[in-house]
């Protein structure tokens, strides 16, 4: 066991899968010699060579379009978008092809493709480097969207994504890329895509978050528990699509109260979908309206103002208390 951060943990997962299966190839802008601008693919080029760790021309649609071809022909490409903000060029390849080829061909053609992309704010970057657009991708039937939150689940989920038979958008919360370390076992560990995880059990309120929001959410939960005699169940969503409603619904049935934390803008976000599913299944168990702590419906601010907009532990704590006091 080694203590790794998320960057190192994803690197470990990629390395081990490449060692095991020579159909796995990595491609993207600066992923080879440079090891990626965040160093997620560091060392892979030296170890596996330029045929398997491909520095591509600078064209995102080209990267994903060719990756689709590779996947159709039996490879398992892991493509990197340098930042999620550069990924909109690939949208028509995902919507037009990757998401559809299985159904278009009634299962005869499949696209086992992973698109890795760092997303979210908190790194004082230029415009287009801080958005959270998981809902945009999750709206495409046929595409899986996965967001890890810690080194250990990042490693286990990247392995699952590579082995998955479908296109997986693997969104990496870059704010916490190097924020903390965690024991990550050297031996293989795989998590199932399509399952969320209860990271802390509780009985009075269900708190749902994902990605970089897990840390402020957990901090807020501790603060509230310290201040009052309540216990909060915290769920890490992990897979955005196809979403695991079961874990959330069962938890809310038990607690009767729910707060959802999302870094993305408020309207038509993943939180809206979670609320809809709670309404579908356990409306009559609710003791309070389901509450959400989100960004605002403004264009992602430049970093000078960014932190005032992003949900933080203080805001989450206030909304948990509002919901408990309803």
């Amino acid at each position: 066991m080694a203590k790794l951060n998320i960057v190192q943990a994803i690197n470990l997962g990629l390395d081990q899968e490449m060692a095991k299966d020579d159909s796995v190839v990595v491609l993207g802008e600066d992923v080879g010699v440079d090891g990626g601008v965040f160093r997620v693919t560091d060392g892979l080029h030296a170890k596996y060579g330029e045929e398997r760790v491909i520095d591509t021309p600078l064209a995102e649609s080209g990267i994903i379009g060719t990756s689709i071809g590779m996947a159709l022909a039996g490879l398992r490409p892991v493509a990197e978008m340098q930042f999620s903000g550069f990924s909109y060029h690939i949208f028509h390849q995902l919507e037009g092809h990757a998401s559809r080829l299985r159904q278009r061909s009634l299962g005869q053609r499949t696209v086992p493709l992973v698109v890795r992309m760092p997303f979210g704010g908190g790194v004082r970057a230029l415009e287009h480097h801080s958005e959270s657009r998981e809902a945009t991708y999750a709206h495409l039937p046929g595409v899986k969207v996965v967001i890890p939150s810690s080194p250990r689940n990042a490693r286990a989920l990247i392995v699952a994504a590579i082995r998955d038979p479908d296109p997986v958008i693997f969104m990496e919360p870059k704010h916490v890329y190097r924020a903390f370390r965690e024991e990550v076992p050297e031996t293989e560990e795989v998590m199932e895509i399509g399952r969320s995880e209860i990271v802390q059990e509780g009985s009075d309120l269900t708190l749902v978050a994902w990605g970089a929001m897990m840390r402020p959410a957990l901090r807020a939960a501790v603060e509230v528990q310290n201040a009052r005699k309540v216990s909060i169940e915290v769920i890490d969503l992990l897979t955005i699509a196809p979403m695991d409603s079961h874990t959330i619904v069962e938890s809310v049935q038990k607690t009767g109260r729910c707060v959802i934390v999302q870094e993305a803008p408020k309207t038509l976000g993943i939180a809206s979908e979670i609320i809809a599913r709670i309404n579908d299944h356990v409306l009559l168990y609710l003791e309070a309206p389901v509450n959400r702590v989100t960004n605002y419906d403004v264009v992602t601010p430049y970093f000078g103002r960014e932190l005032d907009f992003t949900p933080d532990a203080g805001r989450i704590q206030r909304e948990i208390e509002t919901t408990l006091d309803f």
Partner: peptide, 18 residues
């Protein structure tokens, strides 16, 4: 493939795999 021109990239990717 209906989306005009989008399929050309798939051919390049398949060729890479070959």
């Amino acid at each position: 493939s209906i989306i005009v021109g989008s399929q050309a990239l798939h051919a390049t990717g398949i060729a890479y795999a070959m």
